[in-house]
């Protein structure tokens, strides 16, 4: 009994210590926002890598999800004669929930893994140590540009995902389910409120920050060897995904609890 309690206690302490380390890492990262030197070239490259190069996967995910959502709502709604709400539910579902969450998870899969693997490899091949000996702070040079780029570009990706997802629903609604184009678009526009869009973009920003921070944190803490890189990458993706889903719940509560 005591052994089991001790084990639970150890796990709780380890979890709290990890939370503390992550919080400290986050504070350290953002403290570099106001302390030069700055690295605009690295920031630009991170914007391209996180934002621009994620567009295809975000677009594909969104268009198929929007289409599937329209089919589900139509067949589900048919049970109580509510087939006509397809445009409204697709719009609200994509903008409030599926757009931000799916884009966040796609960014976690594509960007977090890539950041964690890249930084972990730099760590095990002493490139991080080399940066320090060259008077360059790795937090400033590697972490801040990536975190900042993700925080700023993921909301844009979410906006694009929302639009393409609604477009996917529109295509299915109009060409498969027989909605008229004007009615479909009119219902979509009428039903969405500014708060829906704001919540979507705020979620995108938060998910982007979490995804990049997880990648950088696990990469920087990687242990030696190929196994260390693998463990860092896996840990980063799992942590980012869980954090994104947890943050989604909290933000949904904040925006729509009333």
């Amino acid at each position: 009994m005591i052994a089991a309690l001790a084990r639970i206690g150890r796990l709780a302490l380890a979890a709290l210590a990890a939370l503390g380390r992550i919080a400290l890492f986050t504070v350290q990262t953002f403290s570099h926002l106001v302390r030069p030197p700055f690295y605009p070239r690295e920031f630009g490259q991170a914007v391209m890598s996180v934002g621009w190069q994620s567009l295809p996967v975000v677009a594909l995910t969104a268009v198929f999800t929007g289409g599937a959502l329209a089919l589900q709502i139509y067949s589900g709604g048919a049970r109580f004669s509510a087939e006509a709400v397809v445009p409204q539910i697709v719009a609200i579902g994509m903008v409030r929930e599926l757009g931000p969450v799916l884009v966040g998870l796609m960014v976690a899969a594509r960007v977090t893994s890539s950041i964690a693997a890249e930084i972990a490899t730099m760590k095990v091949t002493e490139q991080i140590d080399a940066l320090v000996t060259l008077s360059t702070d790795p937090m400033k040079y590697l972490t801040l540009p990536r975190v900042l780029a993700a925080g700023l570009t993921v909301p844009v990706l979410v906006a694009v995902g929302d639009i393409i997802g609604i477009f996917g629903g529109y295509m299915v609604g109009v060409y498969r389910l027989g909605f008229t184009p004007v009615t479909y678009l009119q219902n979509t526009v009428d039903f969405l409120e500014p708060l829906d869009i704001i919540s979507s973009l705020v979620k995108g920003g938060a998910f982007g920050l979490l995804a990049a921070l997880a990648g950088c944190y696990f990469g920087m803490r990687s242990s030696r060897g190929a196994q260390g890189v693998g463990r860092a990458t896996k840990g980063a993706v799992v942590a980012a995904s869980v954090l994104i889903l947890a943050a989604n719940f909290v933000l949904t509560e904040v925006f729509f609890s009333a």
Partner: peptide, 16 residues
């Protein structure tokens, strides 16, 4: 302090 130093690392540690 660091400006005084140069270092050649074991695996060269070049930035890929």
């Amino acid at each position: 302090f660091l400006a005084k130093f140069g270092m050649l690392f074991q695996g060269a540690a070049l930035f890929d």
